[in-house]
């Protein structure tokens, strides 16, 4: 949870051609990187590429994991190798991200977190105005995977960008709604965090007995709603 967006720009920039870097991550995976810092373009490219690999499978690939600006591709070294797989991956990238998730979710939040007032003060607004601004725009799930069911949602507009806290809370409960770096995150399990805790939700994005065990996928659209 180290990242802050360099830009949340849409429009012409989103159609910028990007060429991914393909590098080994150990001897049984490649990491396809669309950027080295978090921005909207790199994130959309990574999610689009991962979605494409799910529908256009490559022999020897055993797992595809979309992340903030990269896609992890695990492979079986008995079936394929680094050079062959790198070539197959490069062939599948068209140069732009046209994929959009069709799924959307409404998530009800109690904005009662211990950091809410301080967050609003730092941003120079009243807490109720902060909640309004926070919920105004539809966000996307930028990435999953930090912890079971954990999601990063973004990006908020420029007025809602705030660094992380200077100290880390050793644990916050499942359902905590977290805010930092132009994003809102939801903890589905108890985790340590340096993000501001602005509220909590009854929504639990992790159930080990369900298949799949999480409901939000990278790319899904999310709208937050305040409940009192």
């Amino acid at each position: 949870m180290e990242q802050s967006p360099k830009t949340a720009a849409h429009g012409p920039l989103a159609r910028r051609q990007i060429k991914p870097e393909i590098a080994p991550l150990g001897d049984a995976a490649l990491l396809v990187r669309f950027g080295k810092s978090l921005d909207d373009v790199a994130n959309r490219a990574a999610l689009a590429f991962a979605a494409q690999l799910e529908t256009d499978a490559i022999a020897g690939v055993v797992e595809v994991v979309p992340s903030l600006v990269s896609v992890l591709v695990r492979y079986d070294p008995a079936v394929t190798d680094r050079i062959r797989l790198s070539g197959e991956l490069a062939l599948r990238w068209s140069g732009e991200a046209s994929w959009e998730s069709t799924r959307s979710h409404r998530i009800a939040v109690h904005f009662d977190g211990p950091d809410l007032v301080e967050v609003a003060m730092t941003l120079g607004v009243r807490p109720e105005d902060f909640v309004q601004m926070h919920n105004d725009s539809e966000l996307r799930v930028l990435a999953t995977g930090f912890a079971p069911g954990f999601v990063y949602c973004g990006f908020h507009g420029a007025r809602l960008i705030l660094p992380r806290r200077t100290t880390v809370r050793p644990r916050v409960p499942a359902g905590s709604v977290l805010f930092a770096a132009g994003q809102t995150a939801i903890a589905a399990t108890e985790i340590p965090t340096g993000w501001h805790v602005i509220g909590h939700t009854q929504f639990r994005n992790f159930d080990a007995s369900a298949e799949p065990p999480t409901r939000l996928q990278a790319g899904d659209r999310v709208i937050f709603e305040a409940i009192h």
Binding site: Q3, G26, A29, L31, K36, V65, S67, V69, L72
Partner: peptide, 12 residues
Amino acid sequence: LSLVSDPILPGD
């Protein structure tokens, strides 16, 4: 400095 998060695998 810390970098943008990427997936991790055993042995990293």
